[in-house]
Amino acid sequence: MLVIRPITEADYPALMRCAEESGHGFTSLPVNEEMLRNRIAHSVESFGKEVTEPGTEGYLMVAEDTETGEVAGTTAIEAAIGLDNPFYTYHLSTVVHASRRLGVHNVVKVLTFGNNYTGNSELCTLFLRPEWRQGLNGRLLSKCRFLMMAEHRHRFSETVLAEMRGVSDDEGNSPFWHWLKEHFFSIDFTHADYLTGIGAKGFIADLMPKLPIYVSLLSPEAQAVIGQVHEKTRPALRLLEKEGFCCRGYVDIFDAGPTVECDVRNIESVRHSITCTVEIGEPNSGKDFIISNGSFDGFRAVVGKVKVDEENNIALITTEMAAALQVKNGDHVRLIEQ
């Protein structure tokens, strides 16, 4: 059984393994020891803080196999982005150039550089190691964050977003970045992506074109990937779309992958999650649920069969599940059916 829990200092080797396996374009998991250790330390501090509103906290978690102790993946939430480091995006919009006198009417797309998402919460760092990509593991890693948001609402903003990995090849070459590099930068996509991952974002403000870019002036290859996702990211995007997330024209400044967003109150797993009292036993029947405990610094989430008595608001769970969640009879849990 996989259990989601807050990361600890002892998880550094496992997090580095995830970073190495995640490949190019995974900005939030750079292969950099100092960066990863700092991120772990920041998460440990964030989970221990008492807060009344979202700030610079970052909540990083891992999925651990309860039998072997092996870490199968990682997932995270940033409480409010852009407060300590700028969060840049391009916004794709439409403008019209027309002249009645000349009988000319042209509708064109433009990309505008900005940081409109400052202060919003971000779903990030979702990575499941290949050998664990089966069953409901991916859903658990993604949806446990919605249970955390529903249970601890004051820690997160009203709008939640997620950056989707854009199109790049196995060597990390991005068609969109190739055009930007040719005209404004002189560094490779992988290097730019790495610098962003370790927080060295000053070069973006220094070199990125400030005026809107007409999409028609980009290379055909760059135009074709705007708003498109990497093939390995499609399952994650489909899951978020089912939760109510959609793209409102914002794309990544490096690979032009889409940013999707949703009001936290409208996220399906937040809206339809329920709270129950725990009863430990051996349910002879039940449905698949993702279930989390009511703790924050001791947050735990698992997926498995649960028998829910809706009339009495009771969730019957197994002894193994109770141990993984660190709950006992009478404790409060939150769950969502799968």
Rank of each mutant, 00 (worst) to 15 (best):
L2E: 08
T8K: 03
E9A: 14
E9I: 15
Y12K: 04
P13I: 15
A14V: 09
R17P: 01
R17D: 12
A19N: 01
A19I: 00
G23N: 00
G25T: 00
T27V: 13
N32Y: 04
E33Y: 04
N38G: 09
R39S: 07
I40W: 10
A41M: 05
S43M: 09
V44N: 08
V44M: 14
E45P: 07
F47R: 03
T52V: 10
E53G: 07
P54Q: 04
E57M: 11
Y59I: 08
A63E: 11
A63H: 06
D65F: 09
D65M: 10
D65K: 10
T66P: 05
G73M: 10
A80W: 02
L83I: 13
N85P: 08
F87W: 10
F87G: 06
T89S: 02
S93F: 09
T94R: 09
V104Q: 12
H105E: 13
V110N: 12
T112E: 13
G114P: 04
N116A: 09
N116D: 13
S121E: 05
S121F: 14
T125Y: 12
E131C: 15
W132I: 15
R133L: 11
R133Q: 15
Q134W: 15
L136R: 07
S142L: 05
R145A: 13
R145I: 14
L147Q: 04
M148K: 06
A150G: 13
R153F: 10
T159P: 00
L161N: 09
A162P: 08
V167D: 02
D169W: 02
P175L: 03
F176N: 04
H178I: 10
E182P: 01
E182D: 10
E182K: 07
S186M: 08
D188G: 09
L195A: 09
G199C: 13
G202F: 08
G202S: 07
V215K: 00
S216P: 07
L218Q: 04
S219A: 07
P220T: 14
P220N: 03
Q223E: 00
I226E: 05
Q228W: 02
Q228I: 05
E231L: 08
K232N: 03
T233E: 12
R234Y: 14
E241Y: 08
E241I: 10
K242G: 01
G244Y: 01
R248S: 01
R248E: 05
D252G: 04
I253S: 04
A256K: 05
E261Y: 06
D263G: 01
R265Y: 08
N266V: 02
S269T: 11
H272T: 14
I274S: 12
C276R: 06
E279G: 01
E279S: 00
G281D: 01
S285H: 04
I290S: 03
I291P: 03
I291N: 02
N293A: 12
S295V: 07
S295E: 14
G298S: 11
A301G: 07
G304F: 07
E311V: 08
N312D: 04
M321V: 11
A323C: 12
A324K: 06
Q326P: 03
Q326A: 15
G330P: 14
D331L: 15
D331E: 14
H332I: 15
V333M: 08
